[in-house]
Nucleic acid binder design. Structure first.
Length: 514
DNA sequence: TTAGGGTTAG
């Protein structure tokens, strides 16, 4: 594989640059095509996803024909729960097709579906607010002899909260016994967590007061509520809760302290965070390892100090943890690399990245995303693309995700390089890594208005159609903008097609109900 | 997949 850098070097020194360019392209292509053919042979989920994406219809009645295509293309023994889950994950951003795939599997009696696959499908239907599919999936699950699980409850509660219906989540909890799920502390904690993560901390607190005598309360209950207050930047309430926790006879855990530590940084109380961290070290030395900072505490401090602009102090803490025998994790490196990119320099961030590789750490998708974002912010788009290319070739197991694509697409759009952004969207639509999500569509469609060209309006119109087919609702403002753009540039027929799709929007605005 | 650390930009 030849890097762009080497190619640029050769180009400057030699006169026969055209031959060298072809040689460069050929080598890259050869390398790439060998990768693709390996992929096809070994990566079953990718192969199945492509087949599902190519299927001509997404109507519920298309499940039978997809089932026969799948059964004639793959032996049923290859459709293991992990393969099924991997396909559902790849098709995550095309909800209707994910559900079509799942419905087709239900028609294949030789494929046994696991509770986690059902949960994935239920989660997708709930996200789409597709009440009919949701009912169908829940009854199909029961018919398959798989009772609803704790996980089913927590994902439904999460979707209710996200849809602005926290009371429905509470009602579901109160009626759990009708669905064969036990009401116990574990489920109660999940309900509180869903409410706190959706910023309904007061509601969670009032429920906690009502039910604490019925379900009890453990360290996890208090940690969930403390984290909820910290997310709202109400560290005072979190400290009060810590006091209440001790008074109730529940011992705080290291997670409790880490939640508060993060809370101080989040609310901009950097000095309080630092004093709290020193206190943790002091008490830890005196009373044992129960509150001695661990890798999570150190990562929180490195990240918090760095974001506050205290890069040298962050570096000292990073070095100190190693001398204290607490090894940094990939997350610690990611936090440090991110703050260097944001508050210091990309060069120093790249040096830490190289040090990470030298020490034998395996970077993950976040490491690459943080670095690629840093390069994009610094205007070094070519280096960002080079890193993405090298990464994908070097590490086949760690693939770019939707964030990776959105970072690069956003920056190409900002630079006015629309074609490059569209090329990446095209690569996403191949279904190898991940499909575009709502952010991708919003980004690219907004960009299509910059050049005021008729062709761009058609591209924007096609994207609106595609996003609706994949279960994403465009904002009314954007929809009208695309419609006006098409009308003003003489694309009346297309505008009419788009208008006809509006009734589909209404069908998508359904509510979740059990 | 019962709680704590690392991803957009606005």
């Amino acid at each position: 594989m030849i890097s762009t850098k080497l190619y640029n070097g050769l180009l400057c020194r030699h006169r026969c640059c055209r031959q060298i360019y072809y040689w460069y392209l050929l080598e890259n292509l050869r390398h790439h095509s060998s990768l693709i053919s390996n992929d096809e042979a070994t990566d079953l989920p990718s192969h199945i996803s492509k087949l599902v994406l190519k299927h001509p219809s997404t109507a519920a009645s298309a499940a039978a024909s997809l089932a026969s295509t799948i059964s004639s293309s793959f032996p049923s023994t290859s459709l293991t729960p992990s393969v099924v889950n991997a396909v559902l994950k790849r098709l995550w951003n095309d909800g209707p097709r994910s559900l079509l795939f799942f419905r087709s599997l239900l028609r294949l009696p030789s494929v046994s579906l696991s509770p986690s696959s059902f949960d994935h499908a239920v989660d997708i239907a709930a996200r789409l607010r597709d009440r009919l599919s949701l009912r169908f999936l829940l009854s199909a699950r029961l018919a398959a002899g798989l009772p609803l699980s704790h996980r089913t409850f927590s994902l439904l509660a999460e979707r209710f909260a996200a849809a602005g219906k926290p009371d429905r989540a509470v009602r579901l909890f109160l009626s759990l016994h009708h669905h064969g799920i036990r009401q116990e502390l574990r489920t109660f904690n999940s309900l509180l967590d869903v409410l706190c993560k959706s910023r309904r901390v007061r509601k969670a607190t009032s429920l906690f007061k009502t039910f604490k005598h019925r379900f009890g309360a453990d360290a996890i209950t208090f940690n969930i509520l403390a984290d909820g207050w910290c997310r709202l930047k109400h560290t005072g309430n979190a400290l009060d809760l810590l006091k209440e926790m001790v008074e109730s006879g529940v011992n705080p855990t290291l997670a409790t302290y880490n939640i508060l530590l993060k809370g101080f940084f989040r609310s901009g109380q950097v000095n309080e965070a630092w004093q709290f961290f020193l206190q943790m070290k002091k008490r830890g030395r005196k009373m044992g390892s129960d509150c001695l900072p661990d890798v999570v505490s150190y990562t929180t401090v490195v990240h918090g100090l760095g974001l506050a602009g205290q890069i040298e102090n962050a570096r000292k803490v990073f070095d100190e943890m190693i001398s204290q025998g607490c090894l940094p994790s990939v997350a610690t490196y990611n936090a440090f690399i991110q703050v260097l990119c944001k508050k210091d320099s990309i060069q120093n961030a790249l040096m830490v990245f190289e040090e990470m590789l030298r020490r034998g750490y395996t970077p993950n998708v976040t490491t690459y995303n943080v670095l690629i974002r840093g390069l994009c912010h610094g205007g070094e788009m070519e280096r960002a693309m080079e890193l993405m290319q090298k990464w994908m070739v070097r590490d086949e197991r760690c693939r770019p995700n939707v964030h990776t694509y959105n970072i690069v697409i956003r920056h190409w759009c900002e630079k006015g390089e629309t074609e490059k952004a569209l090329e990446l969207v095209g690569r996403m639509n191949e279904g190898v890594d991940c499909l575009p999500n709502l952010d991708t569509y919003n980004l690219v469609i907004s960009r299509m208005f910059e050049r005021r060209r008729s062709e761009d309006m058609v591209v924007a119109g096609r994207m609106v159609m595609e996003m609706v087919q994949r279960g994403y609702l465009p904002r009314r403002f954007m929809f009208n903008k695309v419609l006006n753009g098409l009308l003003l540039t003489g694309n009346q027929a297309f505008a009419r097609d788009l208008l006809r799709m509006q009734d589909k929007f209404w069908r998508l605005r359904r509510d979740i109900r059990l």
